[in-house]
Every structure is written in structure tokens, then in C-alpha cells.
Amino acid sequence: MIERDGQGMGADLRALRRSFSVVLRVHLSKFLLTLPVAIGFGALVHRELAHSLEAERFAAALEPALLLEFVRRIEPALGAGLVAFLAAMPLLMLALLFLDGALLRALQRPNSAAAGVSVWREGGQAMVPLLRLWPASFVLLVALGLLPAYGLHRLGRFVVEELADERTAFFIRLSLTALGALFLVHARASGDVARALVVSGAPLGLAVRGFFSAFLRPRLVLAASLPWAIGGLFVLVTLSLIDVRIGRTGTAWVIAGFLTQQLSGVLRTVLGAGWLAAASRLAASSCRPPDGVLPLGPPT
């Protein structure tokens, strides 16, 4: 049974601080995953634009005409790249699951043991239980998160179809979509509670029960996870605004733009880890003696 543990976000932040080096390594791994696409795209841009007099203009802002011409020129390569990206999707999914596992195990470790853990070892050990859980958690996410979110989105369209006042229509649709997003966030957070349980060694059945236990306590779960989701949204919006404002005409600005994007990536990983720390905390509350059956923490 998921319970209020009285610790709140402070405990999540402490867990995050303990595991910060792991978080950075996870970010580095994600960065490496994006590199093939980045290098490939950069090479295409270099081929088309390195010797063009429009290079600076192209780099400074997303001008529709220039961008259209560029896309038209690289269309064949873009198509092939997209196919390759889609083909690599299962591998990417496995890699993401692996990194989540590593993070969860690091976050569940006690104070002293968190810093020096190996991402490879922890991720590897979490992989099998996470893969076993995945079909069930995916079905539950679709049924209890994605479908309600989509249904509410469609309902919004239906409700405002004949509505003349666009302001009201907008707020109705925004509210219903936000409610749908809340369903999705809640289902995802409940799924991560189950993941935290399974990574800590709980049997599959117990993890699925953990999911339902969490799902039936939306206030508790959302209170723990929503701040991290809102933080993620805030980072996205703020850094997008900054990114648009950077006119990349000088080398210093190019570097500033790149660093802004990297900062955004790091912050997203940190917030994602905070989210997992909250899930781990909630999972731990269901395992505390005397009700619990398992000592929380990765098996040695």
C-alpha cells in the first residue's frame, strides 16, 4: 500500500544529490545517443552550406524560405535518415530502459553507496526485471493514461464545435486537454512506482499491485511527481525562449546557443531523475515494515 511517508520532496532532492554523478553520466549517455543524428545532420548542413554566402543567415535564424530550400535539397538523405532512425527505435527504447534502470538503482542506494556506482552494472542488473514489467506497464499506461488523455482531447473538440466564443472554446479545450495530461502524468508516475518496485527486487505481481495502489492515490502520487513535470515544462519553455532570442551571428553566440541547449538537456535529465526519486520514495513507502515484504534497495 502506497502511503504518505512524511518526507516529501526534500528526500527526493537528497537522493538526487547523492546520485548526481550518476545523473550526469546518464545525461552523457543520452547525449551520445543523439550524436549520430546530430553528426549526420551537421554533415548535411556542412555539405550544402559550408561554402554558401548564406551560411551565417541560415545559422542565425530559422528563415522559412532558406529552410525550405535546404529541406528540398536534403530530402533523399532526410528520408533515409528517418528510416534509419525508426529502425533504430527498438534499440533506443532498450537504451532508455537501461538508463532508467541505472538511475532507479542509484537513487535507491543508501547515502554512501550512490556516488560510485557503475551505470553499466546497475543498468544491466535492472534490465531484466524492467523488461519483464514493460508489457504490463505499457498496457496500463495506454489504458489508464493515453486513452483517457486522447478521449478528453477529442471531447474538447466535440464540445466546442458549435461554440461561437473562441475564448471560452479555447479555455474549455485547454482545461480538458490539461486534465488529459494529468491522467497521463499520473499513469506514468504510477508506472514508475511499479518500476521502482521491480528494480528493487519485488516480484512482478507485487509491482503491478504497486501500480494500482499508486494509481488509486492520485493526490499522493501527483503531489510527488507533478512538481518535476511542471519543472520540465518550465525548462522547455524558458530555454526555447532564450534559444529563439540568440541571434547566432558570432562564434560566441553559437557557443552560447549550444550551451543553452546542453543546459536544457542536463536540466531535463535532472528533473527526470527527481521524478524517479519521487517514484522510488513512493515505492519505498509500500515496502516499509511491518506492512512491507521487501527491504527497499537494490539486491546485492
Binding site: 545532420f41 551537421g42 554533415a43 548542413v45 559550408a50 561554402h51 551560411a55 562564434t251 541547449q261 531535463r268
Partner: peptide
């Protein structure tokens, strides 16, 4: 066309695409 290559656009767009893939 210019003789000397300008590498900044490639760098910027590699960054952009990496960011989007992230």
C-alpha cells in the same frame, strides 16, 4: 559560393538536431 568553408551553420544545426532528438 566562397572559397573558405564556414563551419558554424553545421555546428549550430548539429546542436539543434541533437537537441530535438534529445
Amino acid at each position: 559560393r566562397r572559397l573558405e568553408a564556414e563551419h558554424r551553420p553545421a555546428f549550430v544545426f548539429a546542436g539543434h538536431s541533437g537537441y530535438v532528438v534529445g
